[in-house]
Write a protein that binds this DNA or RNA. Sequence first.
DNA 1: AAAGATCTCAACCGCCAGTAG
DNA 2: CCTACTGGCGGTTGAGATCTT
Length: 260
Amino acid sequence: MGRPPCCDKVGIKKGPWTPEEDIILVSYVQQHGPGNWGSVPSKTGLLRCSKSCRLRWTNYLRPGIKRGNFTPHEEGMIVHLQALLDFPLRWAAIASYLPQRTDNDIKNYWNTHLKKKLKKIQPATELPQTAQDSSKSLNIETLAAGSSSTATATYASSTENISRLLQGWMRSSPSAAKIHSGAENGGDDLISNEDFESILSNVAWEKSTCGNDGKFPEMKQNVNKNNPPFSSLEKWLLDESFAGQVEEMNQMMELPTIFY
DNA sequence: AAAGATCTCAACCGCCAGTAG
DNA sequence: CCTACTGGCGGTTGAGATCTT
């Protein structure tokens, strides 16, 4: 059974999005909020299928998305979580801990960068499946050391274009604007002011659209779907009271201090 | 400088779960 | 209960960028 893919419809445009299409989509979401993607093409006149619109918004236009270089910390988180999370939806789960990154971004980065590095490190063995397995051979510092950054000149990769597109959006959100103007980065070397603002604006946006419990919808979903492994993992990663355990485990795993 | 090889990542595809009618 | 539909996921593709020869 199963229905035919929506993108098979005649007249549906495929391929890279143009700035004009992005502006139309951003304007629509500004007015109506994300969701109800099925009606987006008809209401905006975009010749795109609903899935394409949702994907474009989720992976690229959504406020707070950070593009480009993955920091050693992010890289370490991905490797660590990828090793720990051996269940379906793991990319979404990992993304929920890196709210500035999309699951697609993380998946791409894993497939194009980290996989290769792991293969170099573990040429004769398979990729890690569990924390225990990976702990014996992973060296995150080696992984992070070779990370490179390539800025694409294409429109789709230009954060400047997107900032311009989203300026109105940021200004239109009172909470985001308040945080934007008042927040101070507490000197964290790993997160710049700009990045910090992106996180805050993202959280503000998520709260405004998804409730006030402070959790990202992906996180909520995954916690529900994947308990118990996720609840303990959340504590392990996020609860300061687990810091000692983390440090102990990192030492055991020979992980760098980025996890401390 | 040119051609071929390789890499990157945005976008698409197929599948599945949830849900409304 | 069944069907149709939406939203969301992981896997994959392919065009453009970059590197190598």
